[in-house]
Design a protein around this nucleic acid. Structure first.
Lengths: 207, 207
DNA sequence: CCATAGAGAGCGAACGTTCGTTCGCATCTA
DNA sequence: TAGATGCGAACGAACGTTCGCTCTCTATGG
């Protein structure tokens, strides 16, 4: 009992967060009651409320946690030598279930809630902005090194890439039978076609 | 008072549906109470329940209504001579607000609710399947006429197009300050780059 | 080595509120 | 007068949250 004893019932905060993520994923934020979260976490309401002051506080904690995860991901993307390659690799990990990312599952739910809860909205916007800036840096670098057509408008490309990402996550949630993980290479090729400079290897190819 | 007198307080069913759409868009399905819908429709609960047996029935009616609208849209897309052009035109109408489409606003909300409500799920899936089949036909036709690269996997292209559509709608809702309507031409060009056959005017271009 | 006091963790019945829904009655129209 | 239409107070259930209690440790004084 020094300090590292933990096995069966570890950090209660963690247990609540994991339980909440499971419940919210299953039934949505407004669709899950505190009692359900308590049951999932094997904890009474009284105990739970020692760790979180309210239901809202739980979502905010989840998003806050996701923030650091996203930051690491973006770091990795910025340092990758191949922009689209790194993007599709991320997609593959995400959709095969190799990597867990809460926002992939809860994205729309959180987004919807953010429109109502000001405190959550602030945090959500920050995470969103951080990701956008990071993505922009990675894109500009890819354009500078010639991987992505330098003639393309970065704003438009960013909107498109974000839309594709959000759209795939949504679809993954709506129809989980779609083997998105396996399709990522092909989808990546499509994105490459969209972004790569026109093939100037042999022909000048006007009109 | 023959039969066509209607101006101020017309068909109560319509009033309820419009009120519900407004409320759901503002506060989400679980975020709006029946009393709010009643207030928005200037109607008492007692009156409202004469037209809809439950809150669930209201969403189902909304989706049912959207079904015919979508069907018309898809008809138009299938008969268009230019697949990507028709797609971007639809996007422009949608994001400039020229055309109203409930699912554009309520999409994620409805999708989330569909995962919980079996009756809604059935209808949602049907609408989704109809749209997918229509889109597939339009895509295959575009490939046949050489507008879209015939070498591309239709399944992958469909997933991609659906994702882009869903993603743009989501983003339009999350950050309405983005001028998506004006960006559509540029975004359309990106999609064209992705789908158009590689310029084979002069070269055979293998590998 | 034991007894015990104190603190913190955990519990779960209960609270006040809000929700979706109902029902008895009033009000129009024909 | 009969029937459709509309009203709004009221209901039971479920919600997020609270609170007073019990239990389990740990430290200390004998």
């Amino acid at each position: 009992m020094v300090a590292l004893a933990t096995a069966p019932k570890a950090d209660p905060r963690r247990r609540v967060l994991d339980a909440a993520i499971a419940c919210f994923t299953r039934n949505g934020f407004h669709g899950t009651s505190m009692h359900e979260i308590c049951a999932e976490a094997s904890m009474s309401p009284g105990a739970l409320y020692r760790y979180f002051p309210s239901k809202d506080a739980i979502i905010i904690a989840i998003v806050e946690e996701e923030r650091t995860l996203r930051a690491r991901l973006m770091e990795h993307l910025e340092s990758a030598p191949d922009f689209v390659g790194a993007l599709t690799a991320m997609g593959t990990q995400l959709f095969t279930g190799e990597m867990e990312m809460v926002c992939a599952e809860l994205g729309p739910e959180i987004a919807a809630e953010a429109m109502r809860n000001p405190a959550l909205k602030v945090m959500f916007d920050e995470v969103e902005a951080e990701m956008d800036q990071s993505m922009r840096r990675a894109l500009l670098a890819a354009q500078a090194r010639g991987e992505v057509d330098a003639g393309l408008d970065p704003d438009a490309v960013l909107v498109m890439i974000n839309a594709i990402g959000d759209g795939l996550m949504l679809r993954n949630r709506l129809s989980p039978e779609l083997p998105l993980g396996e399709m990522m290479p092909v989808l990546g090729d499509l994105i490459r076609r969209m972004l790569a400079p026109r093939t100037t290897t042999a022909t000048d190819a006007r009109s």
